[in-house]
Nucleic acid binder design. Sequence first.
DNA 1: AGAAAAATGGAATAAAAATTCCGCGAAGAG
DNA 2: CTCTTCGCGGAATTTTTATTCCATTTTTCT
Lengths: 277, 277
Amino acid sequence: MTAPTIPPATYEELRNELAEKHEGLSKRLKQIAEYALDNPNDMALETVSGIAERASVQPSSLIRFAKAFGYSGFSEMQRVFRSYLVESGANYKDRIRSFRNEQGEDGAPRNIVLEDFIDGGIAALKNLRDVVDPEQFEAAVKILGKADVIYLAAQRRAFPVASYLAYAFAQLDKRCVLVDGNGGMFFQQGHSIRSGDALLAISFKSYSPEVIQLVKETREKSIPVVSISDGLLSPLSQNSDVTLEVEEVEVHAFRSLSATMTLALTLVVALGRELQK
Amino acid sequence: MTAPTIPPATYEELRNELAEKHEGLSKRLKQIAEYALDNPNDMALETVSGIAERASVQPSSLIRFAKAFGYSGFSEMQRVFRSYLVESGANYKDRIRSFRNEQGEDGAPRNIVLEDFIDGGIAALKNLRDVVDPEQFEAAVKILGKADVIYLAAQRRAFPVASYLAYAFAQLDKRCVLVDGNGGMFFQQGHSIRSGDALLAISFKSYSPEVIQLVKETREKSIPVVSISDGLLSPLSQNSDVTLEVEEVEVHAFRSLSATMTLALTLVVALGRELQK
DNA sequence: AGAAAAATGGAATAAAAATTCCGCGAAGAG
DNA sequence: CTCTTCGCGGAATTTTTATTCCATTTTTCT
């Protein structure tokens, strides 16, 4: 009775199976198959009785349906539909982070290779595409374009980004000051900002207290602040006029900067365009 | 006790609410808010106890959390996270288009470039996979692992990479000197290298003469040199013991650093492993 | 430092959901 | 035409999941 089938493990497989077996199914099961192909979202998120109602079918038929395809019950089949939702959705975070826990269980560290980081980097870039809001981005460009002098503030891991931007801005003939704390002069450098300028602050968790403080102080002077940071909880985004969000690959305690660098470059080019007007 | 709040009905609203109230929350609730913003997928699909476990929290805290934001229970809040999953899947294609948009046929420049740079970055990463030779990479790690002090030399566009490495090496407790030419002391800094150390030089075309010269001089002292550069024609690779090759894709006449940064991160992690032995 | 208030963990309970079971009725075989 | 088989509906049951409650800890205020 139960088909000795190995149940499809991915949404694609399931779709094909559904289409293929469709002909040979009984009336109700056929009906369900059609509904499933038409409403994968429902299949993924609704409860058995919810789906049963919408598809005008009895709950028990849904269980029979799942079993006909080799699953142990409806829940197991639903997992497949859910995995589809996750994959198709704008969410690469899981893959970005997939390195976090990859320590071999035997204690021996897993051999992490370049391949993995490349995949992670690609995921981070795709994620960047999803999380950067075009309007925010435009707003950031506008602010920077209008600024007389752009102040760049960043420490530690974020510092390379600022230094790259300083280099690129110079190429654009855009004046900028790199507030790098060289010689312990962080605030001395930072405080010379004045009306007409703009601050571009970059910091990721754990956030540099100096940068946070400078952002706050600058804001209090009503000078516009653009920030590049990770997520809404960043103390930077809470004190900035515009925030651009980036999430990077992390391994152990190390994070890459590849997505951030891409964002920075884009900002430079967009700013170049803006300045040409 | 229950906040008289009207609970957020959309994911966006909820996100903002989460970020906004975050400060005023108690320890556990804060912890949950962070987890929720980081893992919306889990919040949408997992069960209460599943999330509780992953977020290292009690199930009851999750219910309290939902109630703190005005929902009647966790399930109600979960609906919001689910709606996000559905929407993000549906809008996915539109969003891409909104970025890709507007190649003015009249010759007007595209106004949005992020999409291009992301594609370029992805291409560069894929290319990196092909051109980096695992043996060379291992050799580079060995050399750096054995070095007493690592000297990092880079200028201009390559400088951010070196500064990133300097930061990361410091985290590994690996001594290093960043030869950055600060105060016009490039060679003074560079010449202090001595037997037992190693030089890691980074430069892309058009190659910085200072870096090239330092590489040559260091080689003449029989001190090992590892370089990161673009292609075998680079004057760096001709004077280095090991060269790691990266080619960044050029988009709109600008080059990114995303692939290089990924390579750098990999190097750091590999070196960390090496040092643990 | 001590009292009051708030937050937390964890078991107990309630609610909801999935699954099973069984009798009925339709379709097909002899 | 009758018997058998298969599929179906729907209530009953089991399992899973969400929620509540309260003792204990932690924080806050005085």
